[in-house]
Every structure is written in structure tokens, then in C-alpha cells.
Amino acid sequence: MLPFQAISFTTTEPGKRLIVTGAVHGNEVAGTHGIRRVIAEIESGALALARGSVTFVPITNPKAYALKRRNGDRNLNRNLQPTAPGVAPAEFEDHIANWLCPLMAQHDALLDLHSFQAQGQAFVMVGPQNNTGALEPTVHGDTERDWALRLGVKRAVDGWLGTYAKGVDERRARAERQPASEGKRHDLDAKYGVGTTEYMRSTGGMALTLECGQHDDPNGPEVAYRAIRNTLALFGLTDEPVPATETAMEGLHLGTVVDKFDRNDAFARPWQSFDPLRAGDVIGTRANGEVVRAPHDGYIVFPNALAEANYEWFYLAEATRRFNP
């Protein structure tokens, strides 16, 4: 069994309890590099903590990291929850969840650092606006928005879990029309789509996911590092000046997730995240010849040409004014 590592720094003064995670997906290492840089600065005395505490998890999924791939046994960031009492962990990610979820619950805020497969600029994913609904209730919507405006990126996206819930409903409907397959389908679970940030909000905390750019973007570690430093300053863990608010933030709201039905479904061209779409534009073609078109004007997000059947192929988003300061 590979070990888990969390590195914590605690001051004598009360303050926010922040946790920062990297490599939730094993091939997304910009956050890992950014985290290790900040740890080194704290340990050397180059960066002084003034109050509160911070916990760093440089490699959240050590199995996926060792294999240099997205997942170990499954996608940790789609069905994150501890196993029920008396139920033995079946996959490596179950062991991670049993360790990570209680750890996150000990903190007030989570900054989760990721990267993505297609080319594109860094952006931040934010939770819903304040609400008391059943899906993802929160009182931190305004705080998350203001935090997102100070991370150092120029694009923010919301709507994740609501979009996923609709996508899982559609996936279930397709599965009911198909011959039964052996084994458990995690992608049909009602909680599919709940990852680190969604779990953190379920504990009453606040959370942001920072997508630091394309996996191999050499600037990704700097994006992660700057976001950590800005967050420490914003929450008062350091006495550095509070970072300025981004005044030209582009805001987008996810509304649709589209799955691959067959691994041979193919894009019409090599899409990049946030490429604009006009209604009727050809996005791709199914293996059975069906042409997939944009249903309305908007943007394509997270296009994944390497997706397997029954997993997300791309998302559609539209502009929102939520992030205009």
C-alpha cells in the first residue's frame, strides 16, 4: 500500500484552516510543484505564517501519480466519499477517501490544484451561488466568488455539480436501454460528480478548483504557486498585502455535459477549452455516423479526445455576469 502524505504548519494565533491539494489526478502535477515550492519557502523562513494553519497534500493519489496517469483504480474526483462503516475498501481510491475526507473536514477552505488535457489558459472553478437546495447547499457562494477573483487568473467557471447531475440522469437512462454489463458502474452512482471541492462544501467549508493550464504547460507550476501565495494572503495566514481583485474576469456557466457513447466517437477538429461555438457548429461525429452539433451559441469546455465510452467527452458553457466585480 502506497503511503499518504500531508504536511501541516500551525501558528499560535487563531485564523483560517486552509488545505491545499495537488495530483488528485496523477498526471496533473503543476499543483504538486507549486505546493512543494511554498513548503520549501515556509521551511526556510522565506515565507512567514502569521496566524491560522495550512495543510499541504502534494500528491493526493499516489498510485495514479506513480503510474503517471489520471486514475489509479477509478477517478477519485468523481465519486469521493468514505466507505460505509463495516464495508471494506474495494479500490485504492476508497483508501484515499477514508483518509482524505476526514482530513478535509478539519479545515475551513480547500484549494484544489489541477490541469487539463487540451490546450488552453488557466481558470478557476467555483461552486454555486448561495442556496438552500438539496444538491449543493452553501452559504459561501459570495466568498468563493471573491476568492476566485484574487487567484491571479482571468476566467471563472461555475455550474459543475448541477450539470453533472443532469448528465448522470441521461447516462442512467442510456444504461437501462442497453444489455446489463458485469461489475459496478461508478458513473451511474447518484453521487457521481462529487469530488474534492463538492465534498468540502458538504462539510460546511468553502472550496475552489484551480485548473493551472494544460498538463505540460511550463507555466502551470507558477500559476499554482501564485494562487497558493495569494490565498494565504487573502485569508490572513500571512501578513503579505491582500491581492488585487481581477477586474476583467470572464465568467462562464456550465450547462451541459456530453458523453462519448463509443470510444471511436471523434471530434471534428482538435478543440481547445473555451473555443467559441455558434449554434449548429459541428463538434464531432459518433461512431455510428451521427453528427453532433452545438445546440446554441456558447463555448466548449474540457474536450477530451481520449475519453472512453460512457465518460465525459466535452462540456458546453455560456457566459455569466456572476464574476463581474
Rank of each mutant, 00 (worst) to 15 (best):
E308W: 11
T10E: 11
T203G: 02
G162E: 00
D189Y: 05
P218R: 00
I283G: 02
S53G: 10
T209C: 11
F302Y: 12
G141L: 04
Y311C: 09
E144T: 07
R286N: 14
A248E: 15
A294F: 02
V38W: 05
N79C: 12
H95T: 15
A165D: 14
R293T: 15
G45R: 11
Q117E: 13
V168N: 00
E176C: 08
A180P: 11
E290N: 15
R278A: 14
D189P: 06
G86R: 06
V258L: 11
V54P: 15
Y311G: 00
L76S: 09
I300W: 01
R263V: 13
A165K: 15
V87Q: 12
F92E: 03
N324Y: 06
F92M: 08
A317R: 02
I283A: 04
A46W: 01
D187C: 10
T60A: 13
I228P: 00
A207N: 01
A84Q: 09
A148G: 11
G72T: 06
N27I: 08
G213C: 03
G204I: 10
E308F: 13
N77L: 04
R286I: 02
E136K: 04
Q106G: 12
H95N: 14
N304W: 01
L2Q: 09
L254V: 04
E136L: 13
I228L: 02
V292M: 13
T285N: 04
G31F: 07
G26C: 13
S115V: 09
V291P: 03
L113V: 01
T285A: 04
P58E: 03
Q214H: 07
R226C: 05
G72H: 05
L188G: 12
T83Q: 09
E198V: 15
R263T: 15
D217L: 07
A64E: 07
I19G: 06
H296Q: 15
Y311N: 15
I228H: 01
V291K: 12
G22L: 08
F314M: 00
L237T: 07
L67Q: 15
R226W: 02
P221L: 02
V258T: 12
T231V: 10
P221Y: 06
L208W: 05
L232F: 02
V292H: 11
A309E: 15
Y315C: 09
P303T: 05
L110K: 01
I35R: 06
A173W: 04
Y311M: 10
D94H: 12
E91V: 10
G289Q: 10
C212R: 01
G195S: 13
G34F: 02
T10S: 13
L237D: 08
P241G: 07
A309M: 10
G195W: 07
H215W: 01
R172H: 09
G205H: 14
H107W: 08
P221C: 03
A173C: 05
L2V: 08
C212K: 02
V194G: 10
V124K: 00
S181F: 02
A244C: 07
T21W: 05
R263Q: 15
L316D: 00
R171K: 13
L210Y: 06
Y299S: 04
L47M: 03
C101D: 11
P303C: 05
E170I: 09
H253E: 14
E93G: 03
V153A: 08
D189G: 06
Y225C: 06
T203S: 14
T245L: 09
D262E: 15
P241M: 03
V54D: 11
R286W: 03
E318D: 11
F56R: 11
D112R: 02
L47H: 00
F4D: 04
Y299P: 01
A84I: 05
N71D: 10
D142E: 14
